[in-house]
């Protein structure tokens, strides 16, 4: 790989970032027109969080620890759960729903005749700003939990947490995209969102509280462990460097898989393989 092609690759990455930035800006502009939505979103989020806190309080009125996690540690998990849910609803889900609609209506053709990476285009077109209220709320919960933890949290733990959070977001995105592409061959896709939401609910607890078979499922089939539990572990000092490395490797594999399946899907779409 020569310096020239490396420069090319860098230029391409920069352009991709520019594209995402433009999409994000347009998305924000759009959402600002629907200001009433922020009230609803915030209200919805607050009710959901209050309910979860009540459940958490109830559980810890009977016991001091759940699967080895203290109350404040579980608050970290819940914070990450809310935060990641915000990322999913503001970025991942709207784009995947748009992709499904485009395939059904034949408008994916317009995406595929654009001189840009198709996967990037279908993944970054939509942005629902008000759903990102949960990202803020989740972050607040995490900070509150960390303050209440009766031990200092080091810089390393915070960096590990942020890294794990980023990896988790990519993991969830990849999982959603695989689900979306895969669904075209298997079933109708209308209920995909409900299906995912149902499964995502399980992420409010660390995966270690679930029985073995479910834990494996939530780690590798529905990667809730990597998206939620691992970042929480990193912040509460439960994650080893190996675990983070494992999360990075898993994310890389899953992301590579989305690239491959996207290409296969395109070939199928254009009938190159038929």
């Amino acid at each position: 790989m020569g310096a020239a092609s490396r420069r090319d690759a860098q230029a391409r990455d920069l352009r991709a970032l520019g594209l995402v930035a433009t999409f994000l800006r347009v998305g924000v502009q759009t959402e600002l027109q629907y200001r009433a939505n922020v009230v609803f979103s915030a209200l919805q989020s607050l009710v959901a969080v209050a309910t979860s806190l009540a459940v958490l309080g109830l559980v810890f009125s009977h016991t001091d620890s759940l699967g080895g996690w203290s109350g404040n540690e579980l608050l970290v998990v819940m914070g990450v759960y809310v935060l990641m849910g915000g990322v999913i609803r503001s970025v991942v889900q709207p784009n995947m729903q748009q992709l499904m609609a485009d395939v059904q209506h034949g408008t994916l053709d317009f995406v595929l005749t654009k001189p840009a990476d198709g996967q990037l285009l279908v993944s970054a077109r939509r942005f629902q700003l008000w759903q990102a209220v949960d990202v803020v709320l989740g972050a607040v919960l995490v900070v509150v939990a960390v303050v209440r933890l009766d031990r200092p949290v080091g810089v390393g733990a915070v960096l590990g947490f942020l890294a794990a959070l980023g990896l988790g977001a990519v993991t969830i995105y990849s999982f959603w995209l695989l689900l979306t592409i895969g669904a075209f061959w298997i079933v109708r896709v209308d209920s995909l969102v409900d299906l995912f939401d149902g499964m995502y609910q399980a992420g409010r607890w660390p995966v270690s509280v679930y029985p073995g078979w479910l834990r494996i499922g939530f780690t590798f089939l529905v990667p809730l462990a990597f998206a939620i539990t691992v970042p929480a572990q990193a912040l509460t000092g439960r994650a080893s460097g190996w675990l983070l490395l494992g999360a990075a490797a898993f994310t890389a594999v899953l992301f590579t898989l989305t690239r491959a399946l996207w290409r296969v899907g395109l070939r199928h779409y254009s009938g190159a393989s038929a």
Binding site: F23, R25, G106, F110, A116
Partner: peptide, 30 residues
Amino acid sequence: LRQITLVMGNRNQLQWDIPAADSFEMNRAI
């Protein structure tokens, strides 16, 4: 792809809930 365009009268490529000017902006980036 930069030198061609495809228009289909029965399918729209503009995003439904945003002004066309914003879609223009996205095409500028693309």
